[in-house]
Simulated scan of single mutants.
Amino acid sequence: MKIDAIVFDLDGTLLNDKKEISRENRVALEELRQAGIKIILATGRNDVYVKGIVAELGGIEAIISCNGASIRRSYTDEIIYSQFLDKASVLEIANHCFTGKFDFTASVYGAMYCVEYSRRVNIFHEYNQQMPKAYRVPVKVMQSAQELAQQDVLKMFIWQMAGREQSVFLEAFHAAAITVVSSENGGMDVSHAETSKGKAIAIFAERYNIPLHRIAAFGDYNNDISMFETVGYSVAMGNASDKVKTHATYVTKTNNEAGVAWGIKEYLE
């Protein structure tokens, strides 16, 4: 089959549970590069939280971050697409989270915002301890919803909101210009209503004249389904949920078994 580009989710897909890229996956990516196949990363992470991985791997064509709210060309660092939450939605959602004392973060270009009482922020502190200074994630503490609403926010992430609280949130904001997806267990990603990984792939493909049917995608979580619905070939990880697997063309091994490398060799060569 003819493939021009492959899109990879990061957490639970290209990365194992230790947040590492296996030797097998590295070799597979290098072979793709040598074959002239474009490599694109598509993640729920802020793109500043991806730059260290991109520098480590090299040869990445583009970073689709914040579930499709941003597309950055890796070689030139050019931002070719952005979709920000409208400031009224940011203000209302942030006020809701501050009032309920919910642990939430917000992604902007070049930094992560968190609340003063955040426990989620520890993942960024741990990441920064392992990274050279140039690739650390700047973390800023927001004191009010009004402060955050002054920023251009790509995505908000609400962590460990209980089931009933999630229902209240979704009911309160069902008419807002937002989309809510899950990129990990226990988390809700809030983005502009027109944002998805699938849409970002379509925008990238149109700009660089790549037929969608000649693009493949690997993923493991609900926020990857839009990718599967957009590209010609989709591969769900073995650790993906049954729901995600039903949307995929193929199912590979788990992220802890170098499922990316196995899936490329088994299905896409």
Rank of each mutant, 00 (worst) to 15 (best):
M1N: 05
I6P: 06
I6W: 04
I6E: 04
V7Q: 08
V7S: 10
V7K: 11
V7I: 14
D9T: 01
D9E: 01
D9M: 02
L10I: 15
D11E: 11
T13E: 10
L14S: 09
L14H: 08
D17I: 11
D17K: 13
K19D: 06
K19H: 13
K19P: 00
S22V: 12
R23K: 14
V27S: 08
L29M: 13
E30L: 09
E31I: 04
R33F: 01
R33C: 02
Q34P: 00
K38F: 06
I39H: 01
A42E: 10
T43N: 12
R45V: 08
R45L: 12
D47M: 06
V50R: 01
E56F: 10
L57Q: 08
I60A: 03
E61G: 00
E61Y: 11
E61H: 07
A62D: 04
A62K: 01
S65A: 15
S70W: 00
I71P: 05
S74T: 07
Y75V: 01
D77H: 03
D77S: 07
E78F: 03
I80H: 12
S82E: 15
F84A: 02
F84C: 05
K87F: 00
S89C: 04
V90P: 11
A94P: 06
A94H: 07
H96I: 00
F102P: 00
T105Y: 01
T105E: 15
S107F: 13
V115M: 04
V115N: 07
S118I: 08
R119Y: 06
N122C: 00
N122T: 09
I123K: 06
E126Y: 05
N128H: 10
N128E: 07
N128P: 11
Q130N: 12
A134V: 11
A134I: 10
A134F: 03
R136D: 01
P138R: 06
K140H: 13
S144H: 08
E147P: 05
A149R: 03
Q150A: 13
Q151M: 14
D152H: 08
L154R: 01
L154T: 04
L154G: 02
M156T: 10
Q160K: 15
Q160D: 15
M161C: 12
Q166R: 15
S167E: 11
A172K: 15
F173E: 11
H174W: 01
H174K: 14
A176Y: 15
A176K: 14
S182Y: 05
N185Q: 07
D189F: 11
V190H: 10
S196E: 12
K197I: 11
G198D: 13
A200P: 14
I201M: 14
F204Y: 15
E206H: 13
Y208S: 01
D220V: 12
D224I: 09
D224Y: 09
I225R: 07
I225E: 05
S226P: 14
M227S: 12
G232V: 08
S234G: 14
A236G: 12
G238E: 10
G238K: 09
N239G: 10
D242V: 08
K245V: 06
Y250A: 01
V251E: 02
T252L: 02
T252M: 02
T254C: 00
N255H: 14
A261M: 05
A261I: 04
W262H: 15
W262N: 07
I264V: 03
K265M: 00
E266R: 14
Y267C: 01
E269P: 00
